[in-house]
Design a protein around this nucleic acid. Structure first.
Lengths: 206, 206
DNA sequence: ACGCTTAAGCAACATCTGTCGTTTTACTAT
DNA sequence: ATAGTAAAACGACAGATGTTGCTTAAGCGT
């Protein structure tokens, strides 16, 4: 039975999971995710196959953990916290752009891989939501909309927008779309009855 | 090689896919998706197992087709088109609410099913995006944001919001959240430089 | 009605999966 | 240091997967 991922004291567990995750990382540089078997993973990780199932229910769970961890780390590296204010939200959007383009160019062709992309999506939106919630937990729900609802909606909107951008062929650089996406997402965040958002904030550029 | 799904002339193909999809439907009333094997599906569909792979790469692809088709049908039943205006957007949100609660109560316990939910999400956002695009294709991109970007962002925001609502334990009835979600999503849609959206439209209820 | 085309049925295959029980080894607390 | 705890290795299992080559039969155009 897989134990929650962060509160791991035992170094053996940490080691094994690390091995499995980096093994998957390595393999995905050559094969597409769907072509990789649990056998492949445990083999290159030098871990017994049965041990794999002590940690993850299947390879999809491993992928989810890998992506969630990587993205979480990226956010922390950039010291992104309390994501409500425009600058923080912009930083989150930029990070998502970087992460997606990076894993897109990762050799793992993102053709029609039935279950691959949807899983990544879930991992990323969850991480974004977490950061946004930090910045919303002290906001009064003046609009009748719960902070959870706002955080979830905003996180999905961000991921959707970035995904749309990342799959555009002749896409502009990330720094250029970030303000555009921000323009779409800010109204959502400002629906939280925060201290200074009672006016409409039209953003009207151009 | 699975052929695109709607342009099917041959009645044999239509028949087989129908059998497979309704077989999955039936089985999901008792077992969770992860517990269902391709064997189970083909068995209850009275279709040869090898034939399954002539139509879908795996059971996840079948699920995706099933969900996409069902949701699409729901939208068409309600005659939802050109989803940009508030009333149409509200109808889309309500439909999503209904669809999610329905499939949630479907006996398929939505515990930690690694790849199940994420896949459903992809199918639904795609369908929502399609409807939204119909209403945006004639909107001038005055804000520098492409209609595709707006449609994608809005569709993800909608799905995220509805999902958050549907997993809330003591949730209000659907009719009650629709206007709230609408309030979050409308600003996105109105970022398209449509004919009559230059004013802020604050919606300010309560 | 007839023949061409193509889907579906069928059997068999190597491989992968998920699980179990047992043994061995590594960490933790005292 | 040592005993107790828990993870990892190992071998083996029934079952599911995805693919292949071949045969049967249903749909389509003439």
């Amino acid at each position: 039975m897989p134990i929650s991922d962060c509160e791991v004291r035992d170094p053996r567990i940490k080691r094994t999971r690390q091995l499995l995750q980096s093994a998957l990382r390595t393999l995905m540089q050559n094969k597409s995710f769907e072509e990789i078997s649990v056998q492949d993973i445990t083999e290159t990780a030098t871990v017994n196959r049965a041990t794999f199932y002590d940690h993850y229910t299947d390879k999809y769970a491993l992928l989810e953990a890998l992506v969630a961890g990587s993205f979480q780390m990226l956010l922390e590296e950039r010291a992104i916290r309390y994501g409500t204010c425009p600058s923080a939200a912009g930083a989150i959007i930029l990070a998502t752009c970087d992460f997606l383009t990076q894993s897109h160019s990762n050799g793992a062709d993102c053709q029609r891989q039935s279950a691959f992309e949807p899983l990544v999506e879930a991992a990323i939106t969850t991480a974004i939501r977490r950061v946004l919630m930090e910045g919303l937990k002290d906001a009064s729900p003046s609009s009748g909309i719960s902070p959870e609802m706002i955080a979830t909606t905003a996180s999905w909107a961000i991921y959707g927008a970035v995904k749309e951008w990342s799959k555009t062929s002749g896409r502009p650089p990330a720094e250029e779309v970030v303000p555009l996406i921000l323009q779409l997402v800010l109204p959502i965040l400002q629906s939280a009855g925060s201290v200074e958002s009672q006016h409409a904030t039209p953003v009207a550029q151009s």
